[in-house]
Design a protein around this nucleic acid. Structure first.
Length: 572
RNA sequence: GCUCGCGUAGCUCAGCUGGAUAGAGUGUCGCCCUCCGAAGGCGAAGGUCACAGGUUCGAAUCCUGUCGCGAGCGCCA
């Protein structure tokens, strides 16, 4: 049941009838007709802009259209009153029994309420994390991981078929650096002092990897030149790092459907194939780029390179795909990777990148646009920085080389549920302050606690009702605080679609906070007015009262499910 | 210099494909404790939505420009 959609359909049907009867010109587009919760509850339960968006194409006065529409709508059973306001708003007040029907519908199909078919089964690939396989995940990665994971769940919830994917950067120079770093730890394990020079990864996490390697191959690579061992050490190290990363992701409850290896592109000629696809469109050429305007690099000199004409698809300058020595730039395998995604038949692609990849967005979109003939939209979500605090003070771990704040540090400190929820309480393109102490506070300004607390309160009430042998019955929703809460529940399906359409999982978190707030308001009102309490002396009254909180817990549970947070039964 | 993001209450932030008198939390002030907690609730005060133009019935939202903050900026991944 989606009340907003249903009432919108009622309005569309009346508008169609008006066109049929000549009260409106035929053939008007109704796409922009919206039904929304009004800003001010005094305006009623729902508001529509129908008359205002149709006024111009119909060449009529908005208030005239609204008045005619209002008169027709008042004949509907669910609409108690329809009135025209302001420049031509249509304000609707719904029949009181609608709220009880809504709650009943939620209880009748708890798993279905809020789910949407908006995605029409479209296949979406969400790529996230994709951290270099050179070490454990750090805090910044965890925000991307949580965001991508919640977005994937949100898209599934709204009717998409989602693949969660991780791109392993195992083809570039940094995995060679990893191999050399592990080699030093290997020597260390065999009793030699490691020489961890400038540019190698110094982190302790490589010590056990070197040890494992030593156990596996013994001393046969000691004193050997790099050509002998590099490839094998690299493969060994990458595998160890990916195991580490999977463990880190598992700590957060993130599980990928697919890990895609960059290296597999090099080995298989697929980069050449992707570039060839662009070449066929005349988008590949040999050329010399203009020097960057303004800031002239010291060592700049014109060089001929293989370039991708990304400007033909909205980029600012064409981009090199081959270095002057003929080897690929990083962009080339990325093109091939996205070409692969397209050829796997995805209808839409989403990339979740760190904000430092901002300069990469236009060229990537250009490549996808060219390779898919403009048919596959690519949305790139840039995740801004996480700033760690503790009790308001910037939080820094020892600056000792290689020792940084990891995902594991944070999750072990505050738990996966708290980490996930808090990471989603800001939109992705705004920086996030994460206070390791405050996120554990039990107070209203901690949204995790506040939402969990609402759920725990309902569960407690339900346990007591069950103990008394009372089950929820036909809901009775009369008081203003009850109606406010029911209205908030009515917004859920609509909110899911808005959040899914915009790829904005943070909206779910904010909604849950508002829902919890309306719930706590009603709950506390019971302190002064015993007739509003859920548990009444009379069993029949209790049965009618507990339906609404139960519906609230169902929606909280569904929302937390999208965010990947476990709803709790009671507060510690 | 160019590109992208951001600029909303003292502070931290929401704000839907453009809608009515711009909303929360926090802080300040007033009132309120037996259903799970006053770790809370109710109410009040608090705004030139950075600035200047434009588009239109209507702009925090779209467009142009300016200012401020952050990030990125030819063979680095």
């Amino acid at each position: 049941m989606n009340l907003f959609r249903e009432i919108r359909e009622d309005i569309l049907a009346e508008l169609a009838a008006m066109m049929q009867e000549g009260a409106l010109p035929a053939g008007l587009s109704l796409d922009n007709v919206a039904v929304e919760p009004p800003r001010d509850p005094a305006h009623g339960d729902m508001a529509s802009n129908a008359a205002m968006v149709l006024a111009r194409p119909a060449a009529m006065k908005p208030r005239d259209i609204a008045a005619a529409l209002a008169q027709r709508l008042e004949g509907h059973a669910r609409i108690a009153r329809a009135e025209v306001a302001g420049p031509g708003f249509l304000n609707l007040r719904l029949a009181p029994e609608v709220w009880g029907e809504l709650v009943e519908a939620i209880l009748a199909a708890p798993d279905a309420y809020g789910r949407s078919r908006m995605g029409r089964g479209q296949r979406v690939n969400v790529e996230y994390v994709s951290a270099n396989p050179t070490g454990p995940l750090h805090v910044g990665h965890s925000r991307g991981a949580v965001f991508g994971d919640a977005l994937a769940a949100l898209l599934e919830y709204s009717g998409h078929e989602v693949t969660r994917e991780y791109y392993i950067n195992d083809g570039g120079a940094q995995v060679d650096v990893l191999a050399r770093s592990v080699y030093e730890r290997y020597r260390e394990a065999l009793g030699h002092a490691p020489e961890i020079g400038e540019g190698l990864y110094p982190g302790d996490y490589l010590v056990p990897v070197g040890k494992a390697l030593a156990e596996k191959v013994g001393s046969r690579w000691l004193g050997q030149p790099e050509e002998v061992w590099l490839a094998e050490v690299r493969a060994f190290a990458i595998e160890a790092m990916m195991r580490l990363i999977r463990e880190d992701l598992a700590l957060l409850g993130v599980e990928m459907d697919n890990f895609f290896s960059e290296k597999s592109l090099y080995d298989s000629g697929r980069i050449e194939a992707a570039i060839e696809a662009l070449r066929e469109q005349g988008l590949i050429y040999q050329g010399v780029l203009e020097p960057p305007r303004g800031k002239m690099p010291e060592d700049w000199e014109p060089r001929e390179q293989t370039l991708f004409r990304s400007t033909a698809h909205g980029d600012d300058v064409d981009r090199p795909i081959q270095k002057s020595d003929g080897s690929w730039t990083y962009f080339a395998p990325d093109i091939a990777y996205h070409f692969d995604k397209i050829s796997r038949g995805f209808d839409r692609l989403v990339d979740v990148f760190g904000a430092d990849h901002g300069g990469y967005v236009k060229r990537m979109k250009a490549a996808v646009s060219a390779l898919s003939g403009g048919k596959v939209p690519l949305d790139i979500k840039l995740i801004q920085l996480v700033r760690l605090f503790r009790d308001g003070e910037p939080f820094r771990m020892s600056k000792r080389a290689g020792n940084f704040i990891t995902l594991r540090d944070v999750v072990e400190r505050v738990g996966a549920d708290v980490t996930r929820f808090v990471m989603l309480t800001r939109k992705n393109d705004a920086p996030l302050d994460f206070d390791l102490a405050r996120v554990l506070e039990q107070s209203r300004d901690n949204p995790v606690f506040y939402v969990q607390y609402a759920h725990a309160r309902v569960r407690s009430v339900m346990r007591k009702a069950e103990a008394a042998g009372i089950s929820p019955g036909a809901p009775l929703i009369e008081d203003a605080a009850e109606v406010t809460l029911a209205k908030k529940l009515a917004e859920w399906p609509r909110l899911v679609e808005i959040a899914a359409r915009g790829h904005e999982p943070h909206r779910i978190a904010f909604y849950l906070y508002e829902l919890a707030s309306d719930f706590h308001a009603l709950y506390n009102r019971g302190n002064d007015r015993p007739e509003l309490r859920f548990l009444q002396d009379d069993a029949a009254a209790t049965s009618a009262k507990i339906a609404l909180p139960l519906a609230v817990s169902i929606v909280i549970s569904a929302g937390l499910g999208i965010l990947g947070v476990t709803p709790v039964e009671e507060m510690r």
